[in-house]
Design a protein around this nucleic acid. Sequence first.
DNA 1: AAGTGGACCTGCTAGC
DNA 2: TGCTAGCAGGTCCACT
Length: 280
Amino acid sequence: MPELPEVEVTRQSFASRILGAHVLSLRMGKPLRWPLGCDPGRLEGATVGPVLRRGKYLWVPLSLAGIAAENPPEGLLVHLGMSGALTFAKSLGPSGPHDHFELDTTAGLLRLTDPRRFGAVVWGASMASGLPARLLASLGLEPFDEAMTGAYLHQRLKGRKVSIKQALLAGDIVVGAGNIYACEALFMAGIDPRLAAGLVSRPRCDRLVLAVQEVLRQALAMGGSSLRDFKDAYGSQGHFQLSTRVYGREGEPCRTCATPVRRLVQGQRSTFFCPVCQKK
DNA sequence: AAGTGGACCTGCTAGC
DNA sequence: TGCTAGCAGGTCCACT
């Protein structure tokens, strides 16, 4: 589920409320992608720092010695996987079979509900050490980083034979665009998703960077996409799924030229595109 | 190094 | 109505 807009919407919906709060307890349910990596008890009493997002990961700093005293703070790296949602809950203990993590604080109880359990909550002595560091190390640029330019994209795509769609999804060049937004950005940029990444011209790289940024901006403004599970910390759903140009619209008319949208499979994932508006 | 395919896990829907 | 196959927002890892 959650791509960059959903993760960012989630972050914004809970970060300010729990900033400066103290951890009362931490509970893990069924195993997620990786073990927590520490005794849950060690985080009791910790102070919550400013929550950061990197790609589709959230970093929740937890300082045992007060926010400013420790540098850098330890914390939890959280990933929502395919079906995760972080929401504020009313009372301790799972309310359903898919509630697998709870962080109870003096400012509210945060709960991760994740039916497929592809999500993760991993402790790190810092964001730059241990498993968190390893997971973050291979990530590409943030899409709104000023270094994210057509020149950078063109340079990084050079010589790569995979399709441009798969190169976008891989996340080692630019993070944040998952299956929905990669399809949408390629449509906006008028690029055929099957085109070899290394053959995308420099001008088209310029357009693609702008398209990725634009689609993410639009999704963010609509609270993300809620195909099924996604909600922000207060349970609100996103609306971007109602305005996709191609994603999930196989057989329906292209919003630009009315040609039926096509679906194909690339790297075991569905790709949606307009065979007329998107060219090789 | 780059590309491919399998793995993780559960739930929902379309089709027979 | 009930079963089964196929599909779903992610990404790591082993292998060629």
